[in-house]
Design a binder for these strands. Structure first.
Length: 698
DNA sequence: TTAGGGTTAG
């Protein structure tokens, strides 16, 4: 061979040198020397030249190299395999294994069938490979046929075949069969147990995972890191901090923290169980943090509604130059949605467009939810339409988004479309549907949907569904009907239900049922400041000012804290905060002046302050001033002077908008020619041209 | 030659 004279690069030398002294059994040589396709080509060429390829055992060795070396393709291996006259079971095994590992499990199963047709008897190595392929495919019926073959050929449950059979059944939805085999298994090792865990965790049966783990501990079989990973995942989903901590302590005591996957699971478990600080300590201690570790910590914050922390950590992740993946983006988007962080969310959307051509279901859904929660409902619809694949989550996000943005009828149109496309709604979808009816005053429709969810979809109404129904009736002024509805509830109504009724009583000036609601709330828990304020306003609305004052003074007497009204407005990515009657800001006089100007202008356009809801402890003359200093008015006035004409103003509020501010905002939108979007605790108000998207139902 | 794992959306 000529390259013994002129040495080519190192890698080729080793392969070539080896070839010149080809050993009797070349298996390990071929496997070790063939590291690249080029090596493989050379060895293969040599085998053909020397006719060694016709030696079945040598052909098999090169076949195995071809199946293992080339990263994503089996074509080279196929070309060798096709030239083997009468391949034996070992050759088939190599090919089946190759297909299984190289993401073509369906070809692995097909080849197994071909093997049987060619009367080549499978051996104890064939079955684990082909069963693994079935597991990957979720191919239960093929798996069952293979099981029959296993029995026919007399293989028992011992060893690998038994374990892979259990794994196959467990991961293809045949968990009961898997359990039967597991029970009959003569010698259950850690792999046997892990195969069962894999099945339960794949189907989300987290309780079964923890119960099985306790049985494993009783049995005395030593668990391993894979077991702990599955168990920790289950603890996270179940918020089972007790068992989770036990595993955590075991990991600490046995010095297993160096396994980053295991630590990531611990971080995730602590975060999902609410111990965010513990999670963060572990996370900070991790030497190597991959994208999954970062995502676990970020989603921990996001799910705990610590959205600012989630965004901060995301920025740290970018600073650490770790590339976010889909999961990261989905978590961060959901935090942006809660915060109304429009700029960051938009940036993420651009990032998604650049990075991933196809919108996946979770990504699309997170974007729909994000835009809807930022009041950009048209953009939410646009993203939804772009999604090629949608599931019940995506439809629900859109329906809820439309409902909270005051487009109840459109929400119901989408609900009908969802049914036409055969996507079955779930309990949360119905919350969106009922909320659409409530916000749009669709009483009869709401009642029909409430009946239909149980009758046609077999969904048992939860407390929230009953609450929505009370809201629908109450808002429409059908207070007595709402009261009867509560009395007929098959479950014990909670305070949310009674507070919903109380709010309706306030809106419709119904003192009788208002008093009754307060009584019922007080039976369950101490009254909130909001309850007193609603009751006080209710009395004031029917002219019982003394009672109103008495209720107000109770707040002070009992020392009940009131949550101050707070509005946020985002300008150039900076969030400004306003509190009611806030004079702490350095520019407050400027803002108060702007507020005054704003009020004067809308007064001349017909705005009349509604003093009914003003704090009753304020002196009569001051009432209108107090009204004009509600946080949303301050925020709107601030935005009016700080932004260019016609720019949309976006306000986020911690409480519900009061009726006076609602009225004022309508007039402001017309007088100043501005679209104003206010997100309150429950929903959106899009003020434009003197009216609001909520049609004054809120 | 043969088996197992973590983060995501309403």
């Amino acid at each position: 061979m000529d390259f013994a004279i002129t040495p080519p690069p190192a890698k080729t030398v080793s392969a070539a040198m080896a070839i010149s002294q080809f050993p009797e059994n070349p298996k390990s040589l071929i496997l070790h020397q063939c590291k690249t396709p080029r090596d493989l080509n050379q060895v293969h060429a040599h085998l053909i030249k020397t006719r060694l390829i016709f030696n079945p055992s040598i052909a098999e060795n090169i076949l195995e190299s071809a199946a293992l070396v080339l990263a994503n393709s089996m074509e080279y291996a196929v070309s060798i395999f096709d030239k083997i006259a009468g391949p034996n079971s070992s050759a088939y095994n190599v090919m089946i294994r190759g297909f299984t590992y190289k993401q073509s499990p369906e070809r692995a199963v097909a080849l197994f069938e071909e093997m049987c047709q060619n009367s080549v008897q499978p051996d104890e190595f064939t079955f684990p490979c082909v069963l693994k392929a079935c597991s990957r495919l979720g191919a239960l019926s093929e798996g069952k046929q293979i099981h029959a073959q296993v029995l026919k050929l007399g293989f028992g449950l011992e060893g690998f075949v038994g374990n892979t059979l259990i794994h196959m059944y467990a991961s293809c939805g045949g968990i009961h069969i898997a359990h039967k085999l597991f029970d009959r298994m003569p010698d259950r090792g850690v792999m046997t147990w892990n195969s069962m865990f894999a099945g339960y965790s794949r189907s989300g049966n987290w309780i079964e995972v923890t119960e099985l783990f306790r049985k494993m501990l009783e049995s005395g079989v030593q668990f391993d890191e894979v077991t702990m990973i599955t168990v920790l995942t289950a603890c996270a989903r179940l918020a089972d901090i007790e068992l989770g901590k036990w595993v955590g302590d075991y990991i600490k005591a046995n010095g297993l923290k160096r396994n980053p996957t295991l630590t990531t699971c611990l971080v995730d478990m602590y975060a999902k169980c609410g111990s965010l600080d513990l999670a963060r300590i572990l996370f900070d201690q991790m030497e190597q943090k991959d994208v999954v570790a970062w995502s676990a910590m970020i989603s921990g914050y996001s799910q705990a509604r610590k959205c600012k922390e989630a965004l901060d950590l995301f920025h740290q992740m970018q600073a650490a130059e770790v590339d976010p993946n889909e999961v990261t983006v989905v978590s961060v988007l959901s935090s942006c949605a809660v915060l109304g962080a429009l700029e960051t969310g938009r940036w993420l959307h651009l990032f998604v467009k650049k990075r991933w051509v196809k919108l996946t279901v979770p990504l699309g859904t997170a974007l729909v939810d994000f835009y809807a929660k930022c009041g950009m409902i048209d953009k939410a619809i646009e993203v939804f339409m772009e999604m090629r694949c949608k599931n019940v989550f995506s439809w629900t996000a859109l329906i809820q988004g439309l409902a909270s943005n005051g487009q109840g009828k459109r929400a119901l149109d989408f609900f009908r479309q969802m049914q036409e496309e055969n996507v079955p709604p779930n309990d949360v979808t119905f919350l969106g549907v009922l909320s659409a009816c409530s916000h749009s005053g669709l009483v009869e429709e709401g009642r029909d949907f409430f009946v239909s969810m149980n009758r046609d979809f077999d969904i048992e109404p939860r407390m929230e569904h009953y609450g929505s129904m009370v809201d629908i009736l109450g808002r429409a002024g059908r207070i007595e009907e709402a009261y009867q509805f509560i009395n007929n509830m098959p479950i014990m109504p909670n305070t949310v239900i009674w507070r919903t009724l109380l709010a309706s009583c306030r809106a419709h000036k119904n003192v009788v049922f208002g008093d009754e609601s307060i009584k019922r709330i007080a039976e369950i828990e101490p009254l909130h400041s909001g309850d007193y304020i609603l009751l006080s306003n209710l009395y004031a609305s029917v002219g019982r000012l003394e009672d109103a004052m008495r209720v107000r003074s109770l707040i002070k007497e009992k020392g009940i804290k009131k949550a101050p009204g707070c509005s946020l407005v985002e300008l150039d990515g900076v969030v400004h905060e306003f509190l009611s009657e806030d004079d702490s800001r350095s520019c407050s006089s400027e803002i108060y002046r702007a507020t005054e100007d704003m009020i004067n202008r809308i007064r001349s356009a017909g705005y009349v302050p509604n003093v009914e809801e003003v704090r009753l402890d304020v002196e009569e003359d001051d009432k209108e001033v107090s009204l004009s200093h509600h946080s949303e008015k301050l925020a709107i006035a601030f935005a009016l002077i700080k932004t260019r004409p016609r720019t949309t103003i976006r306000i986020s509020k911690n409480l519900r908008v009061c009726s006076d501010c609602h009225n004022a905002a309508k007039v402001i939108s017309k007088v100043f020619d501005r679209e104003i979007i206010v997100r309150d605790r429950n929903r959106f108000h899009h003020f434009k041209d003197g009216s609001c998207s909520c049609n004054d139902f809120w």
